[in-house]
Every structure is written in structure tokens, then in C-alpha cells.
Design a protein around this nucleic acid. Sequence first.
DNA 1: TAGATTGTTAATCGATTAACAATC
DNA 2: TAGATTGTTAATCGATTAACAATC
Lengths: 214, 214
Amino acid sequence: MEHKEISRAVIKRLPRYYRYLGELLEEGIERISSGELSERMKVTASQIRQDLNNFGGFGQQGYGYNVAYLYTEIGKILGLDQKHHVIIVGAGNLGQALTNYTNFEKRGFIIKGMFDINPRLIGMTVRGIPVYPLEELQHVIEKEQVQIAALTIPKGQAGEMADRLVSYGIKAIWNFAHTDLNVPDDVMVESVHLSDSLMRLSYRLSSETKRMDE
Amino acid sequence: MEHKEISRAVIKRLPRYYRYLGELLEEGIERISSGELSERMKVTASQIRQDLNNFGGFGQQGYGYNVAYLYTEIGKILGLDQKHHVIIVGAGNLGQALTNYTNFEKRGFIIKGMFDINPRLIGMTVRGIPVYPLEELQHVIEKEQVQIAALTIPKGQAGEMADRLVSYGIKAIWNFAHTDLNVPDDVMVESVHLSDSLMRLSYRLSSETKRMDE
DNA sequence: TAGATTGTTAATCGATTAACAATC
DNA sequence: TAGATTGTTAATCGATTAACAATC
């Protein structure tokens, strides 16, 4: 219906709001004003109110925001009220690390299997989740109605594997390969480029050092 | 000296330029114009020229940019011409994955050790790199002149550990814990919030589904 | 009711894109 | 020299912040 397209910048901040609200909830805090939250998160209160109002009026004048309510609502916006079936393509250390991270499960991301070409890994289980050979890929995706694939394989094979996953009906790729993927418009890609991140850290370290030399 | 502070947005894009230039280099391409690069990277040529000119005139009118030269120069800007000593705090799957990723080493990030509280991991080696007990932290940091610490431990312990690392002289923290760290201004933090990333993917998946329902 | 704080409009700031003169 | 393409200034666009009327 109404199509006030939400800006990329806002979406990027949503999980952070969710994280802070979760912490408030744990601390037993019931309500919070944009002003208080702004101090904690180190953003302006104005930005918080603007961001939230993209999705509707969650607050109440003179009161602020109800933490539990806002937490739930942002969860819904992020799609965390639904179960998502996930596979991990690439059962190396990184793939295993993702599988072991049980918090994803709590948020509704259910890992249905891991995949690898390495025969030594096939048959192994992590947290009871088996490593399948790649031949099983299509079968498992269809049977388990998998929507999300985490791609934790070397960049050389990533492009081809992405195409293959898309052809099997995958709708979202969580890409850890150090390359950009080209997929159809209706397939979502979220990339975690670890080396890019490390280089940014290196840049800031170097430029800070230079600044101090002056 | 001259202080035309580089914007956050530009710095964020630098590693991506570096990545694409590396690929061009591998393909044996000697020179490239901002127009050609813009097609590959799917950004505007104007942005490429603006970004690069923050650091100096790397191109030549009528010719474009020399790939090898530009690659080297951006490498220098990113601090990749220098060696950085790194430790990994938290020797679980994720820590091991980082240690196994040999490309970091190629870029000058040399891992000097891993650390853990788990006695079962201590003494183990990954690619020849030993897992030390936390008691060795200060000693190794000082002896090996470690600048960068990757933090791959649960969020509950992350804040305290960050303080400890800072007190031992660490100048940059690559934070994988699902929490924001508070450190002094001269200490750089680069966070990789995996769950934030997964939630963004989930958001886009959900909103795409909704759009199609209309 | 008075005080607090939101939701929202308006002003500002910064980042991106367009345009073009400079120059290889 | 003519053609190509940069470096850079100007114009546009979008995102952030400030301000304040609405309202609980």
C-alpha cells in the first residue's frame, strides 16, 4: 500500500536499536525517552524519533516509549517474528562458528544443514546439524524450504555457487566470500567483507599515528 | 599539516576500490578510466574521481589511472605497506577462522598469538600459532609489539576485556562481540556485528515478501 | 492543569552527481 | 593537433538536526 520507501541509513540502524532495547529489557527498564536512549546510544534524540516514525508512532507524548512494546515492534519490522530456515554453504571454521552461535536460533534463524565439498567434513555434525555433500543442496533447500544461505566458501567459487543457490530458490544470501555477488533483483545479498573491515581499522590506525607525528 | 579530514563514507569505500584494483591487476589490465571502473563497481565515475582526489591526483587526463600504481597507493593509504601485529582474543571457531585466513597475513597482518580461558584450548596451535592463557596477554602484547586485537569472545566479557587490552597498550580493536565498546578516543574500534547483519538481511527478505503480496 | 515528551515540519549540513575547463 | 579523461567547481539530492506545536 503506502510506499514511503525506508532509507538505507535507517534500516542499517534498526538492528542497533533492537540490540539496545534488548539490553534495557534485561535491565528491567520499562520505559525510555528518546533523550535517555540517545545518551546511551550516542546518537541524537531527534534521529531516534525520526527513525522510529518511519514505521509508525510507537511512543506517547509526555511518557516516552514502552521498552517491551518497542522491542517487539522493531522485532516484527526486522522479520524476527517469523522463522527463517538457513543453510551454511562451506563447513570450515567460519561456517562452524556461525552454526555454533545459538543466538541466531533464538531470533528465529534455524540452521537446517551445512554443506561442503571436503569429504572429510561430510557426515560430521555441529550442534547436531549435519554436514551434507553439495549433491544434497537442492534436495535440502526444497524439502526444508530454506530461504537464507550463508556463503562461507573461498571467493573463487562464490559466484558460481550463488547462481546455483538462486536456481534452487534461495531468496537471501549472507555472503562472507571476499567478492561482490551478482544476483537477480529479487534475491537479497548482505555481504560481510571481513578484510574490508580490517583494512578500515588499519587505515584509522595509520592515520591516527600520522596525526600524532605532526 | 593540511587537514582536509576524509569523510567516513569515503574511507568505507576505500577497501572496495582496493579489492577491485587487485582483481584488475590479476586480470593483467594495465590502465582503467573512471568510466570503466564505474561500470564494474556500479558506482558513478564522478564518485570515483571525487573519492580518489581526496588523497591526491592519481590519474592522468586522457589516459585514466594506472592500475598497479593506484593499487599500491591505495594500499599505502590503508596502511597495508606496513606490518601490523595482531592477536586473537578468543580461540573458538571464529577466532580460529580468522587465524586460518592466510590472506590477512599477505596484507601485512601478522597473527602473533591466540588467547583463551578454556584450558582445553591452551597449548593448541592453529597454523603454528599457539593458544596462550590470558595470563600471557600483557607479556605477548609488549614483547611482540601488538597493535591490533581481534575480540572474538562472548559479549558479557567483551567490555572488561577491551579495557584490559587498552591498559596493555592495544591501539585498535576488531570487535566481533555483539556489543558496542567504550574505549578512549585514541583507540580505534571496528565492529563486525554479525547478528546486525543477519537482521538486515531478514528485514529486506520480509519487506520484499510483503511488497510482492500487494 | 502543568510538565514532559512525542511526532512532524523546517533548516542545516554533508554527500553525491553533473558539468566543464584544464591538460595529457 | 584532436580526443579522451581527469581534477575540480557548482548543482542537486538526501540525511541529520533543530524547533515547536500537538498531546498525553
